[in-house]
């Protein structure tokens, strides 16, 4: 059997199947896309909602129950929340740039691969770097404004503060290593297979062959 013999019958493929009615087709237009990118957009939106609810509740709790220096924690959360919004916007932008289904297949897939790799890198590094920043900032605020501390922060021994800071930095550095690997593993688990598959397809499409 040759491919050309199949060509003769190709027009009949699926022609005996009963297609969806006009109403069924119309109903399909209202459904949500299940494409990987649409799912990523939905997950990102859910993440945004979760973070917003969590942050608003936590910040409100601090403002209602504490005063003075401890409010710095609430302000720190607000700053992190704003940074998160910038992070969300950048991720959303990358996702929007990730597909052009009406473009040539090769350019669409190449773009998808390029942007997805950028997205994953961004996701991994921001996730990793955020950890030591938050860790050290929280430590410093607790050290300076903890209500249990009776000593005035100005009169606190400088030596103690430097030792505390050094310990915090060392801890943050040591803990950032497993966080980096954990992030890397998680990102690979989420997108690794899809990236590998896209790479393979794009490589195959980029193969430049010449007729002999």
């Amino acid at each position: 059997m040759e491919l050309d013999q199949l060509k003769e019958m190709w027009d009949d493929v699926g022609s005996k199947e009963k297609g969806p009615s006009a109403d069924e087709l119309q109903a399909l237009l209202q459904k949500k896309s299940k494409s990987p990118i649409a799912k990523m957009k939905r997950n990102l939106f859910m993440e945004l909602l979760f973070i917003l609810v969590l942050y608003v509740l936590t910040v409100a709790y601090y403002f209602l129950n504490f005063s003075g220096g401890m409010l710095s924690l609430a302000w720190m959360l607000i700053v992190i929340g704003v940074l998160y919004l910038l992070y969300y916007r950048q991720k959303r932008r990358l996702l929007n740039r990730m597909e052009c289904v009406s473009c040539e297949v090769k350019s669409n897939l190449s773009m998808q691969l390029r942007v997805l790799e950028k997205y994953v890198k961004f996701y991994m590094w921001v996730g990793t770097l955020l950890f030591p920043v938050v860790f050290i900032a929280s430590g410093v605020i607790v050290l300076l404004y903890s209500p249990d501390t009776t000593a005035d922060p100005v009169t606190r021994e400088r030596f103690f503060i430097w030792v505390f800071l050094a310990v915090m930095i060392v801890f943050a550095a040591v803990l950032t290593i497993p966080v980096y690997f954990l992030n890397k593993w998680y990102v690979r688990k989420l997108y690794g297979q899809h990236i590998e598959r896209l790479k393979k397809i794009v490589d195959e499409m980029n193969e430049d062959l010449v007729e002999r």
């Binding site: 199947e17 990987p36 289904v101 473009c103 040539e104 297949v105 669409n108 897939l109 998808q112 896209l198």
Partner: peptide, 23 residues
Amino acid sequence: RIALNTAISNLRKQARKVVLSFP
């Protein structure tokens, strides 16, 4: 373009042995 882009980029991990059902 749209049909092929959707089919190719939406494919999930392939099972080891996949034989298409015959129309």
